[in-house]
């Protein structure tokens, strides 16, 4: 088997060398950054997040990047990235990485503690920084949260987001008790985030039906 693989690799290399000068790897890769809300009001939804992560792992292809980070009191920090990986070019190696990521994320989600505050903006800033560094062709930020931002005193998050070329998808935006009393609050919250994302040059979508995740990552 090894000999055949080597023979084919050499042959394919020879065939590919004819156009190797115009090869630009990375141009078609995707980068997905998933922000998980771990605040007290939302911590009970993490089992659904596991489902989303598994779906992402199943659909991502070799060369794609995935990072899972939590949203806590101050999320603009690398320490909040729970797991990250850029899948190898080779499908067999990428499958191994997927297994490892699945195992790592599973155990980390089990150990997550609820946070007091919800710094969504900080998480998005961290996501932008991470994805800019990885530079995939298509960049997606998934926010698994009720979008209710709660910041500790002194935190400055009134910052313009630079989201040109980004797609921001809000997942499982649950209604709070206050939303039920006055649904306008829920709508206002969604519109505020939409305006903020679109104002930063990004595109905005909301997916609440987690049974149909096909539209999660637009192909």
């Amino acid at each position: 088997m090894g000999a055949i693989r080597w023979a084919i690799a050499v042959f394919a290399l020879a065939a590919g060398l004819t156009c190797s000068s115009c090869s630009q790897p990375g141009d078609h890769s995707r980068g997905v950054y998933l922000l998980l809300d771990t605040s007290g009001t939302y911590a009970g939804q993490l089992e659904k997040a596991r489902h989303v992560i598994n779906y992402l792992l199943a659909t991502l292809e070799p060369g794609d990047t995935l990072a899972v980070a939590r949203i806590d009191t101050g999320s603009f920090s690398e320490n909040d990235i729970l797991a990250k990986a850029t899948l190898d070019d080779r499908p067999s190696r990428a499958n191994q990485q997927k297994r490892q990521l699945h195992q790592a994320v599973g155990s980390l989600l089990d150990e997550l503690r609820p946070s007091r505050y919800t710094d969504i903006t900080g998480g998005i800033l961290q996501a932008i920084e991470f994805l800019n560094e990885k530079a995939p062709a298509r960049r997606t930020i998934l926010i698994f949260s009720d979008l209710q931002e709660e910041l500790p005193k002194g935190f400055v998050r009134d910052i313009d987001l630079k989201l040109a070329g980004y797609e921001v998808v809000a997942l499982n935006v649950t209604k709070l008790r206050a939303d039920n009393v006055d649904p306008r609050e829920y709508m206002t919250r969604l519109e505020a985030w939409r305006d903020r994302v679109q104002g930063g040059g990004g595109s905005w979508r909301v997916i609440n039906d987690l049974e149909h995740l096909e539209a999660l990552i637009a192909s």
Binding site: A12, Q24, P25, D27, E61, D64, D89, R90
Partner: peptide
């Protein structure tokens, strides 16, 4: 694609083809 990379592309003008497919 497990040998030449699943995310490697060859660009012919405006069209891109997977290196594995071309091979």
């Amino acid at each position: 694609s497990d040998m030449v990379g699943g995310n490697s592309y060859l660009h012919f003008g405006l069209t891109a083809f997977k290196t594995a497919d071309v091979a």
